[in-house]
Amino acid sequence: MTVPVLPWTAGCRCGAVRLRITKPAMLTVACHCTGCQKMTGSAFSTSIMVPSDGVVVTGDTVRGGLREGMLHHEHCDACKSWVFTRFDPDPGFVNVRATMLDDATWYAPFAETFTSEALPWAKTGARWSFERFPAADEHPAVFAAFAAEAS
């Protein structure tokens, strides 16, 4: 995987929301859960886990998708593109939708989650697969493997 030099830039479809990413990805992920399928209108969502303090957002976002609970899916207020997801409480990262990157050609999911809900034909080639979300004790190994390959 050849990851471009930081900073990365990203934005919604109409350009009203812009992101500047200043810290390297912690992990790249595809989620196959039915919620992500419905929000993307596709077989899975694509995410780049970035340290929370490494994402600067300009423009107005509105919460969509799940409106309650720990997930806060942020959408452009103008075009309604799903741009990123924050968590409450903050686990130290933000999930930026990979397709929002101005240059997403390097993106490939390193891990995939909720394969138990995947459409039978949806294959990502991810190196790590989980039937649901990985357990907390599995996180260090996945992050370490990604860091080793991304460096």
Rank of each mutant, 00 (worst) to 15 (best):
R67C: 13
V96A: 03
V62R: 12
G64K: 06
P140C: 08
A145F: 13
E149F: 04
S116F: 00
F133E: 14
P120E: 09
S47C: 05
G35M: 14
T9F: 10
M49Y: 14
S42L: 05
A78R: 11
T28M: 02
G69N: 07
K23F: 13
G65R: 01
Q37W: 02
R20I: 04
A118N: 09
I21A: 03
H73I: 11
M100G: 02
K38R: 15
L101P: 07
M26S: 08
F87N: 00
E112I: 01
T85C: 11
T99R: 14
D90R: 11
A135K: 14
V56M: 13
L101D: 09
V5G: 05
G11D: 01
C76E: 01
P134M: 08
A108D: 07
F114P: 00
F130A: 01
G92N: 05
C14L: 00
G59R: 05
C14R: 00
G11L: 00
I48V: 13
G15V: 00
V17R: 03
A122S: 13
S47R: 05
S42H: 11
F146Y: 13
S52H: 02
A122R: 02
L71F: 15
S42D: 05
A111K: 02
V17Q: 03
W82I: 00
M26C: 02
D60F: 02
P4S: 04
A144E: 11
D137E: 14
K23L: 14
H73T: 12
I21C: 05
C31A: 08
A25K: 01
A104Q: 03
P7H: 12
S52C: 03
T124F: 09
H72S: 14
E131A: 11
F44T: 06
R20F: 06
C33M: 11
C12W: 05
H75F: 12
P109K: 02
A10T: 04
P109S: 08
A145N: 07
R63S: 15
W82C: 06
T28I: 04
M26R: 12
N95L: 15
M1H: 10
F143I: 14
G64N: 10
R97C: 07
W82T: 00
S42E: 08
T40W: 04
R86D: 10
H72C: 12
G69P: 07
M100F: 01
F130H: 01
V56D: 15
R97W: 08
T105Y: 08
K123D: 12
A135V: 07
L27T: 01
M26A: 12
T28G: 02
F146Q: 06
A16F: 04
R20D: 01
G59W: 02
C31Y: 02
M26K: 12
G69Y: 10
S47W: 04
K123G: 09
T115P: 02
M1R: 08
F133T: 11
M100L: 10
F143P: 08
G92T: 06
S129W: 03
R13P: 11
S129K: 12
F84A: 08
R86S: 12
E131N: 05
F84Q: 09
E68Q: 15
F87S: 00
T85M: 11
Q37M: 03
W82R: 09
V17M: 09
P24N: 09
H72R: 15
A111C: 10
D60Y: 01
R13C: 15
D60R: 10
A141G: 00
H139M: 15
V56S: 14
G54H: 02
D77F: 10
T113N: 06
